[in-house]
Each structure stands twice: as structure tokens, then as C-alpha cells.
């Protein structure tokens, strides 16, 4: 049986900058894999290469045996099987919560209106925002928006869910709601690839933890090993900074936010034409 995700010799350059320097990596069906590491280590880029939001410079990405890096592959069809959850939610602000969850079902999967609505309501209820169907995303809290985003991805019946720092943009008291939704998903057997800074979550839920630094995988293995008893010095330094920031000797800024993610809100100033 093919791996759910199989990445071989993945390289990614942004101009001169080499962000990924040869990653080999697999996720098996039903597994939950957490990717941790300092910001700028390439973990978000790795995740974005899995559904080809970033075009890898070199190497292959296979999802369920289909090579996505093949230029002739129907990438839209392949992405239907991959749910993606972003750090900044990226809900469609001009649509209601219900319409957010329905639109891709209708336009991409060509589901009927009644069926799409049923699936949408089901998934919204599942993530605990069933009562927000008629609200618009900006009216919701960050935690609610992120759960709607998860429901939107789940409504497509994905084989694999990708999470790109799903709790990094949330107020601390809202993180728990999102994590508990993800925990439920993991328990139900969803295959998940998660970039996160939530060490206790990774420790509890992950089948495997991957530590990345400087564009390479430094260490991977079961969470008890990678987080509990890291073998590499870089892993130890990173964990010390994240788990005990007040006593880390160096600056602790890494744990706060990721500079690699491309979601710096481009609230572009509207250039007036005249």
C-alpha cells in the first residue's frame, strides 16, 4: 500500500534562499505527524509543498501514490483530497459561515444544494459552531473562525488534513477549542500533517514528531523520544527555548511567530485611479 504522503529529496529555493535542502519523509494512513522547529526552518514551506501551494524546486511529492510534482497531473483534482487549514484561517469574508463550507462542495464536487448544506451543517456541528451558520466570518472569534475553516476542509471528505500552525494566530484562551477539535479528528483516524508550536499537543496526539531546522529534518521519531528525550543538541536547544522561554539564554522570539508563512495580511492600500 502506498504511503499517504511520500516526499523524496525535496528542495525549495526562493531566489537565492534555499528553504528546503533535501527532505525525505513519509506519512502513513491514519497517522498524525507533527512538524516542529524554529521559525524559518522551512516547516511551513514543507507543508505548502505537499499540496503544491509552493512549487518545489526539485524532488517529488506523492500523495496516495499520485505524484503531484508531475507537471501533467490534475492538481485541482488532487487538492480535492487534501484539506488545508491556515494560520490566518482564510475564510471567505463575503460569504456566510454556511456558504463558506458549501461553496467548494457545490462548485468543485458539484454536490446538490441540499446535500452540500446537510454536509456543511453536519461538519459545523462537529467542530462546535453549528449555531453560527448565518454569521459572517469577521463576526466570529479567531477560535470560531479556525473551527469553521476546519469544517470547510472536512466537508470535502479529504484523505489527508494539512494544518499550518492552526493556533498561532489565536488568543491563548481560544487555542484549546481548536486543539480539541483536532484531537477528535485524530481519534477518528484522520491522517494529519501538522505544523505546530504546541508541544504538549504534539506529545499527546502525534504518532511521530519531526524536528526541522535550517531546511533539513534533524530528528524524527515518536514524541516521547523527540520531545521527551531529544538526541540532537539543536532539538534540545529549541525545546528548551519553547518550553521554558524565561530561562532560555538566547532571545526567545522564535516561538512567537513564524516569519515564513505567507499570510502577512496584505491589507493593500487601495490605489485611487484618479
Amino acid at each position: 500500500m502506498p504511503h499517504a504522503v511520500e516526499i523524496t529529496d525535496l528542495h525549495k529555493h526562493f531566489g537565492e534562499l534555499e528553504v528546503l535542502k533535501g527532505i525525505d519523509f513519509t506519512v502513513d494512513e491514519g497517522q498524525v505527524v507533527c512538524v516542529i522547529g524554529p521559525s524559518g526552518s522551512g516547516k511551513s514551506t514543507l507543508l505548502r509543498c505537499v499540496n503544491l501551494l509552493e512549487q518545489p524546486t526539485k524532488g517529488t511529492v506523492r500523495v496516495n501514490g499520485v505524484e503531484l510534482t508531475d507537471p501533467d497531473v490534475d492538481i485541482d483534482a488532487a487538492r480535492r483530497r487534501l484539506g488545508m487549514v491556515f494560520q490566518s484561517f482564510n475564510l471567505f469574508p463575503h460569504l456566510t459561515v454556511l456558504a463558506n463550507v458549501m461553496i467548494a462542495q457545490r462548485r468543485v464536487l458539484r454536490r446538490g444544494k441540499a446535500e452540500a448544506e446537510r454536509v456543511a451543517r453536519e461538519n459545523l456541528a462537529k467542530v462546535g459552531v453549528g449555531d453560527k451558520c448565518d454569521a459572517y466570518p469577521p463576526q466570529l472569534s479567531g477560535g470560531q473562525q479556525q473551527r469553521v475553516a476546519i469544517a470547510r476542509a472536512l466537508a470535502m471528505d479529504p484523505d489527508l488534513m494539512l494544518f499550518d500552525e492552526p493556533t498561532s494566530a489565536l488568543d491563548p484562551e481560544l487555542v484549546g477549542d481548536v486543539l480539541s477539535v483536532m484531537r477528535d479528528l485524530a481519534r477518528d483516524g484522520m491522517t494529519m500533517l501538522i505544523v505546530t508550536h504546541e508541544m504538549s499537543f504534539a506529545r499527546e496526539v502525534a504518532d511521530r514528531v519531526v524536528f526541522m531546522d535550517g531546511g533539513v529534518v534533524v530528528e524524527e521519531g515518536p514524541p516521547e523520544q523527540v520531545i521527551g528525550a531529544p538526541r540532537h543538541e539543536r532539538t534540545r536547544t529549541f525545546l528548551k527555548r519553547v518550553l521554558d522561554p524565561t530561562h532560555a539564554s538566547d532571545d526567545t522570539a522564535d516561538s512567537a511567530s513564524s516569519a515564513t508563512s505567507a499570510d502577512a495580511d496584505s491589507e493593500g492600500t487601495q490605489a485611487q485611479a484618479r
Binding site: R79, R80, M84, F86, F92, A153, A262, G268
Partner: peptide
């Protein structure tokens, strides 16, 4: 002016 994440979210939904 539409944030880049909107296109990414739409594309990642297929």
C-alpha cells in the same frame, strides 16, 4: 488588495 490567502484557500479546496 484581496489577501493572497484567499486565493490559496480557494485553490487548496480544489
Amino acid at each position: 488588495a484581496v489577501p493572497k490567502g484567499q486565493m490559496e484557500a480557494a485553490r487548496s479546496l480544489g
